[in-house]
Design a protein around this nucleic acid. Structure first.
Lengths: 193, 193
DNA sequence: CGTTTGACCGAAAATGAATTTTAGTCAATT
DNA sequence: AATTGACTAAAATTCATTTTCGGTCAAACG
């Protein structure tokens, strides 16, 4: 039974190629070659290159969601969960070959599709955090606030400390990133004395 | 008396041209033309285009410093001063024709010199804030912390709320930006209840 | 004699025509 | 009915030619 699942073959080939060569340098001929199918076959499953890319992106994002869900633990408090989920999501993003390649492509080529893909990932992260924040507000763990604004700022806060800041100084150790996150989010800066 | 100050003429012409056309599209021939001097004359005062650009940049940065100094008021507390100085500096930056042009050029052309100029401005802002933060630590207005990390994060926090966020939603009104700044910096997020 | 100048130079960038590559189609094949 | 790859139109790349630009310097100027 079971004739080869050509859709699967195409999907796997495309995932490999996008991760290895990026959006622009992935050609439909190449995907067909890797998948061992005729080029026309690709178009029976996907209307065009963009849709194929979206499908790959979507599946990577789904993986990311799973990581996030596995990381959230009901027995931990909001701030602990927040830190761990940000850490997990961004670690995942920074290590996933597809996202690494898209970041390079954005930086080096400025490919709009790479931009679009990364923006989509960022939105998913923000809206995931947003859910966590909304839950925390309901639990009265944090004070009422606009969850979207706050989750956006949290992501920025984290990436400022973990990433952008490296251009100015040595990368901060994880422990210290956590410390500063908590300083801003949990305690604020005002002197306790 | 007073033969025309040709150095001044060149400087004014260059300032006008960089602000109007950006770094790349400003040619030495054009600067000479605007300044009404021969091109060779420029090179008696400045070794090359880069140095001329640096001089213009430096003078814009000096203006910015003056604004900041005028804005800091000893009779206000740290958080008030912080908010007002960030606001003043970034308003200035956003309205100064040179910086507007350089931002466009960075976005549209990716000119490295435009990048460099804006990075320099950002460094000045961060180190200015850093001074304010260090003072506040000495005054025991805020708890001890790494002033560079904290001032960097403050700038990012502000620009996240005032700028980057606009891609996701309507721009936040000033009052609300201030509110969120204070939420993070002064109080932290934890529920008071 | 010190200052100013613009014609001049080589390097770098812009142009555009010729060539190659690529996304997407479809008649032939299995 | 599903699959294919030769085919096409459009986009990207190449590359020789032309133009522009930063920087120099011998001549002109005062």
């Amino acid at each position: 039974m079971a004739a080869v699942d050509r859709r699967r073959l195409v999907l796997d080939a495309a995932a490999k190629s996008f991760a290895l060569f990026g959006y622009k340098a992935t050609t439909m001929d190449q995907v067909a070659k890797i998948a061992n199918v005729g080029k026309g076959t690709i178009y029976t499953f996907f209307t065009n290159k963009d849709e194929l890319f979206d499908e790959i992106l979507h599946s990577a994002i789904t993986d990311m969601r799973k990581i996030a869900e596995r990381t959230i633990r009901d027995d931990r408090d909001f701030f602990d969960n927040l830190y761990r989920v940000l850490d997990a999501l961004l670690d995942f993003r920074d290590e996933h070959a597809l996202f690494i390649k898209l970041s390079q492509e954005k930086r080096d080529l400025g490919t709009p599709k790479a931009d679009y893909g990364l923006a989509k990932v960022e939105n998913v992260i923000v809206s995931y955090i947003q859910g966590v924040v909304e839950q925390a507000i309901r639990n009265d763990e944090i004070r009422p606030c606009d969850a979207q604004v706050v989750s956006y700022v949290m992501l920025r806060l984290y990436t400022s400390l973990a990433g952008d800041f490296n251009q100015l100084r040595e990368p901060l150790p994880k422990e210290q990133i956590k410390e500063y996150m908590l300083l801003f989010l949990e305690q604020g800066l005002r002197s306790s004395g």
